[in-house]
Design a protein around this nucleic acid. Sequence first.
DNA 1: CGACCTGGTTACCGATCGGATACCGTGAAA
DNA 2: TTTCACGGTATCCGATCGGTAACCAGGTCG
Lengths: 117, 117
Amino acid sequence: METLRADMFDEICPSTLLPFRIGGDKWAALVLVCLEDGPRRYSELRVPLARVTPKVLTQSLRTLERDGFILRKQYDEPVRRVTYELTDLGRSLLEPMRVMCDWASDHWDELLDARES
Amino acid sequence: METLRADMFDEICPSTLLPFRIGGDKWAALVLVCLEDGPRRYSELRVPLARVTPKVLTQSLRTLERDGFILRKQYDEPVRRVTYELTDLGRSLLEPMRVMCDWASDHWDELLDARES
DNA sequence: CGACCTGGTTACCGATCGGATACCGTGAAA
DNA sequence: TTTCACGGTATCCGATCGGTAACCAGGTCG
């Protein structure tokens, strides 16, 4: 899913030009993409999502959890460890998202033109 | 496009449960759907979008126009007449939207379950 | 002991969003 | 002359959103 990642994490377009949003929340789509390849810890998510402050990231995660897209797992280990992973529902969302992203890259120039004028 | 229309105009879900938005604006997707079958006048749009106040509808229309999804046409006729219609870009968005809506109806129960608990 | 890592929380802030309500100018119709 | 349809505007409001900055408790490491 190279193009999806490339487009969505682009500085120019942190979901601002991309004309759709998942879950109504600015970063939700990117969080889902970050979880594509398996569970991730909170601190691991903060790396690709460096522009997102902890508060806002937590908010997104809580909402995505509430809506059944991701699952939060807390481990009873000496070191505190929390991971987030996609549920089946969340994973199923990746396909429609890819369709949207494909559409966006197909019409990228038109989107830019419209915005500039 | 029956299911799309049925789902999106449902009172239960004025884009609140549906986990995506076009253009970041609450009503944009519904406006696009309303223009699916050809140009519509402002007053014609207000019928299906009765819950949207004129101010907010105008806002949505302006944004959609700015972003190149719809075209506003003002006619030089004695009676004031304005129509809105999809551009090619706007029309091309209907396909990805349908994919999202299909996804939503496939997972409707799961979405509801997650929200309730 | 002190510093650091982890996974957050808290308080505050300004901007934006959506909605409610009222109003308006033009032209046609009665 | 009043009234109506049309396509909006103007004003105000409360809620939410995203962001900044600071802080924090528990555990580990040196």
